[in-house]
Amino acid sequence: MTLDWNVVWQYRGDLAQGVLLTIALTVATMAIAVPGGIAVMLMRQSHVRAVSFAGTVFVEFFRNVPLILLVYWAFYVLPILTDIQFSAFATGLVAMCLNVSAYNAETFRAGVNSIRKGQLEAAMAMGMSRSQAMRKVVLPQAVRRILPVLASTWVSLFKDTSLVSVIAVGELAHTALQIRSQTFRVLEMLTAMAAIYWLLGYPQAKIVDWIHRKYGVTE
């Protein structure tokens, strides 16, 4: 077997573009899924039963279906449902956002619920209003619990962007798999793909560990 690693260098431009798209998809998804998650969490806390039920269904459903299936589903359903022709990137983004918003909503809920009720009561006993107590006392503590989970979600999300390759979004995985089938340099391209993901993902995993050490609550 002769290996030709030159192919990786030859297609460096395409691969770099794939990397950029992977990063763009990760950032865009998180940028939407943080407010999305907060919105869904607030829905779940609504006193209107239909609204809180809808929030719960959203969270439970999108956390309990495979993302790859969600991507296919969005690919076929979105154009019909909305009568708009979505680009592959936009379709992938929608699927990712549905999934990550559901996870974030649960993260936020758990973060806020983890703060003991006594903290709110103590703040209000000092004369703070309910919203002051939430802003000054509960939320700062909740953020410390939410941030590490959000960081872990970020890394999962970064890796999960590879799944939108199945609907031909030209991110890193799709680009590498395309080059593989054009050049038949299977081992070289698949190894290069793994190596590039590793180079991008390894530091992220280490940063997540650092955040967990810094903010991690041990009880």
């Binding site: 890796k159 590879s162 995985a173 992220q204 995993a205």
Partner: peptide, 10 residues
Amino acid sequence: DSMRAIPVLV
């Protein structure tokens, strides 16, 4: 840590 960094698809 490597497995945490690489997508399962890959």
